[in-house]
């Protein structure tokens, strides 16, 4: 019973962070129809921004917004000067479909290289604002700590803010309309190019939060070659696919499903499946429900 509870708690916390990364991938996909493999590099760079702020101000609560703003700015810059030019240069032929995706892989390498140049390749450390030592019940320790509680709360607050932004504001309507039908959006007066940049910057900020919390929930150490960030990207990507790639709520559900399933597999089957389980889940999902768990094929009538 206690083990079951711990398994669920571990799964939910991990899933919450995957949800953020999945949100970042979904936001980029919706705004520019690009699968952004550079998201891991962007999240890593943002976490370095957060680390710098931590060094100067010694406060996680300053470091987090610094990472978010930095991540948003980097993402906006990439969309504005890099992706836009690229899409314009390769607008026809077989290259057009794959060029942006390949380019994001190139960007990933470029960002990691830049980080190594500025910060070196050695581990740096980020410390969370509260302890990661689990709450205890009697003589047992829960796999749930003040830091994990904080992580969950932050994710919930951010997702609620994003949902309100998307569903209740003109900016959200512009973002959705531009994603579903850029042409009708433009004819209605939406500045679609600007909206695309905005979509990327929201993704940059979400990825930054994912990177920061992924790091402090681990051992706090990270470097340009951190395996944690590659796993974060893959998990976010899988969660986004499970969620159907189109909706924020899908990203959240996808993240939680992935987090829980992986947690159960590690606990009840074998902990050696750590690197295999996410991929198995992805393949199973793609086989039985390629449109994702909650992805619906748009029912467009004549």
């Amino acid at each position: 019973m206690f083990q079951l509870l711990n398994t669920i708690l571990i799964g939910i916390t991990a899933g919450a962070i995957y949800s953020l990364m999945a949100t970042a991938i979904v936001l980029v996909w919706r705004s520019t129809r690009v699968i952004n493999f550079a998201q891991a590099g962007m999240a890593l760079l943002s976490t370095y921004f957060g680390y710098e702020a931590m060094v100067h101000f010694n406060s996680f609560w300053i470091a987090l917004p610094v990472a978010m703003v930095g991540g948003a700015a980097v993402a906006a810059l990439i969309e504005l000067v890099f992706m836009r030019l690229l899409v314009k240069r390769s607008s026809t032929g077989p290259i057009a479909a794959v060029a942006p995706i390949i380019a994001t892989l190139g960007l990933l390498g470029l960002i990691k290289g830049l980080i190594s140049t500025f910060w070196g390749g050695a581990d740096v450390r980020l410390v969370g604002p509260v302890t990661n030592i689990g709450y205890s019940i009697g003589d047992k320790t829960l796999a749930f700590s003040p830091l994990k509680l904080l992580t969950l709360c932050t994710v919930v607050v951010l997702m609620l803010l994003l949902t309100v932004l998307f569903q209740k504001s003109n900016i959200g309507l512009s973002l959705r309309a531009s994603a579903y039908s850029p042409e009708i959006a433009r004819l209605s007066g939406v500045k679609v190019d600007f909206v695309r940049t905005l979509g990327w910057s929201l993704a940059g900020a979400s990825g930054a939060v994912a990177g920061m919390f992924q790091t402090v929930n681990g051992n706090g150490a990270f470097s340009p070659e951190s395996i944690e960030f590659s796993l974060l990207l893959i998990s976010g990507f899988i969660a986004a696919i499970i969620g159907g790639l189109e909706s924020l709520i899908g990203a959240v559900i996808g993240g939680l499903v992935l987090g829980l399933v992986v947690s159960f597999v590690l606990m009840y089957i074998s902990s050696s499946l750590f690197f295999i389980a996410p991929f198995l889940i992805l393949l199973i999902i793609l086989f039985i429900r390629p449109q994702g768990i909650i992805g619906v094929k748009a029912a467009r009538r004549g």
Partner: peptide, 26 residues
């Protein structure tokens, strides 16, 4: 204002959202 070919609405949005989209720049 241009109403393009083929019932140019955004199916995923509600009726009122489609309408409000038209006035979004005002």
């Amino acid at each position: 204002s241009h109403v393009s070919e083929g019932k140019a609405v955004i199916p995923e949005l509600s009726v009122v959202e489609n309408l409000e989209l038209g006035a979004i720049w005002r």
